[in-house]
Amino acid sequence: MTVASRKTEAENGARPFQKAVPDFSKEQDLAAYERMLTIRRFEEKAGQMYGMGLIGGFCHLYIGQEAVVIGMQMTLKPGDQVITGYRDHGHMLACGMNPKGVMAELTGRTHGYSKGKGGSMHMFSVEKGFYGGHGIVGAPVPIGTGLAFANTYRGNDNVCLTYFGDGAANQGQVYESFNMAELWKLPVVYVIENNRYAMGTAIARSSAETNLSRRGLSFNIPGEQVDGMDVRAVKAAGDKAVAWCRAGKGPYILEMLTYRYRGHSMSDPAKYRTREEVEKVRATHDPIEQARLRIIEKKFASEDQLKKIDAKVRALINEASEFATHDAEPDVSELYTDVYR
């Protein structure tokens, strides 16, 4: 990040980063670019489909925050777990869940991950280690701590990534979880996605301590702030935190400084921030654009090669959208299934 852009960050209320960011290999940069772009295109498509009435209810888009989940996912191994709140589409795609199944759940259809019974905020994949998709702010934090507890109980070295936002960071259950996690040295990385607004309330208006990486101090949980718009910085910090957990040293807090371009949900008029603020972040810090420029600069790929990736991603997302549009609604007999096992 340049000195000039640091100043911009400071002006916007975010904090600067002094840390050097380790470079990605060609393969890493290209893979991260494609994965982040997949989330971006998926979310844009979901936004359109919401506008067309194909997706109902609440729909919280992840656009702008893609580097966080993609960078963190690069630190995991099989058996690790991921859990998050309701802004969850990006996390599911990062975990390797099929865009068709995710989109079909958004449209409430048979082949959605939850057979159409969960919707945008409630999807799961046992196979991919994704434990939801939870609609209640703060609730995934003790649940994720419990997933980590299961790793300790079974004596494996798996780690649970427990994501939550700057808004959830003020929930009481978060601190109950921090206490137990450190007390029992549970392998959980608390990934706080600080996108600066809890719905419409700016962090400084809701939080007495706005440096959320310090929120574990009184429990002796180490924490650090990370440039959540740079996938390389995310991965580097994630590697350190995950290694800490795998070594049995207990939980770790990563505060990802990130930004969402869209509203809190689809019906957010976004009157609590200026259009200029959003434009500025998009223009100077976009995680995908940063990766693209890096790839070109380092000659990891040509413009044409990137265009091919773009076309491939668009095709994948169009396929998902087509599938989700034409898949049947769940059979009425599904109303009473899955209440009990």
Partner: peptide
Amino acid sequence: DTPITEHGFAGLGVGAALAGL
């Protein structure tokens, strides 16, 4: 033995159950 944190340990129990315990 847990700390006196019903909200937290009930949620932790749910997480352990989702993991198959």
